[in-house]
């Protein structure tokens, strides 16, 4: 018995040696190729890390100089070299949330229309339109905002709101046209394609049994939508909305062109504001002092961190949905 065993062991070893070298010869190019791909793909990771790292490096003087005060002081004054990020953070949050409030009903309405109501041709046309809305560059939206939207707001909408709803703090002050309201409106149009295309996919993933069940019980179309489509997909819709928020927070050019660029905190939607992205776009090229550059980089770092958190949150929601089976 032991003899056979050693014999077998010997044979096995022999075979292994033989095939190992054989394998190496054949697979060497394959292995090199795999390593090449690994390196190229890892460059994406390195890229993301170095974005954070370089921002941190650039922002370090300001971080060191002002510390946490940066986050809660509300003066942004490049002339006096005083930098508090609160006004720009406020501007970003306010414009993004307003845009969400406007855009969520609009996007969900479009998504429901496309997935539940429209005949196929019309649905395709509406989807196409929404995709084209997404394709229009940000700077063109900004141009349109300056020359069409802002004058319209200044001469028609804001006087109207001021006259009839002026008792609310949101609608007080002189109508400038450019300002929070204009920025939010433009943002709402820009994030609608994002939210509605994701929501559409989520509604489509709801199994048709659910719909048939509701209809068979005598539900009207709207009841069917409420009972079987919306209730089965609300968490996915939440993910879509959060992704839209992520886009709104970082949107730069259109906002820069219509937000008015004044770093004030005001509840009035008529007054000019400033967002994190727009303050960088406006001041970075003209910044002369090192501390100004560093403060702007710090704003960039903050923006990076916030969008990172928001987007990874949305990704988590969507991924959990996928592992749960999405509905199918």
């Amino acid at each position: 018995m032991p003899d056979v065993n050693t014999d077998l062991g010997h044979l096995k070893e022999l075979a292994q040696n033989k095939f190992r070298s054989f394998g190496k010869e054949i697979h060497k190019p394959d292995r090199n190729f795999l390593w090449f791909l690994r390196i190229v793909a890892s460059a994406v990771i390195a890229c993301l890390l170095s974005v954070g790292l370089f921002l941190l490096l650039k922002a370090w003087p300001a971080l060191y100089h002002t510390g946490l005060r940066f986050l809660y002081t509300n003066t942004w004054d490049p002339v006096g070299d005083v930098y508090g990020a609160l006004p720009v953070v406020f501007g970003t949050l306010l414009s993004s949330f307003l845009a969400l409030i406007l855009s969520v009903p609009l996007s969900l309405g479009i998504a429901l229309f496309v997935s539940e109501l429209a005949p196929r041709r019309l649905a395709r046309f509406v989807s196409f339109t929404v995709e084209m809305l997404a394709a229009i560059p940000s700077v063109v939206y900004g141009l349109w905002g300056i020359f069409v939207l802002a004058p319209w707001l200044r001469t028609v909408v804001e006087p109207f709101l001021g006259t009839y709803f002026g008792f609310l703090p949101f609608f007080q002050g002189p109508p400038y046209g450019v300002g929070m309201l204009a920025a939010s409106l433009i943002l709402a149009v820009m994030i609608t394609p994002t939210i509605s295309s994701i929501a559409r996919e989520i509604f489509r993933a709801v199994p048709s049994n659910y719909r048939e069940a509701a209809l068979a019980l005598g539900a009207t179309r709207w009841e069917m939508i409420r009972l079987s489509v919306l209730s089965a997909s609300w968490s996915g819709v939440l993910g879509a909305v959060v992704l839209g928020l992520g886009r709104a927070l970082g949107e730069t050019m259109a906002v820069t062109m219509v937000i008015g660029n004044r770093a004030d905190i005001s509840l009035s939607l008529f007054s000019p504001g400033q967002s994190m992205a727009s303050v960088i776009a406006n001041e970075y090229v003209e910044a002369t002092s090192d501390i100004h550059l560093a403060a702007l980089a710090e704003v960039g770092l903050l923006l990076f961190a916030v969008t990172f958190l928001v987007n990874s949150g949305a990704r988590l929601i969507v991924l959990r949905l996928k592992t749960k089976g999405g509905g199918r």
Binding site: S138, G250, E251, T307, F308
Partner: peptide, 9 residues
């Protein structure tokens, strides 16, 4: 995450 980094950043 890289695709969601704001363009200005």
């Amino acid at each position: 995450m890289l695709s969601s980094v704001p363009s200005i950043v």
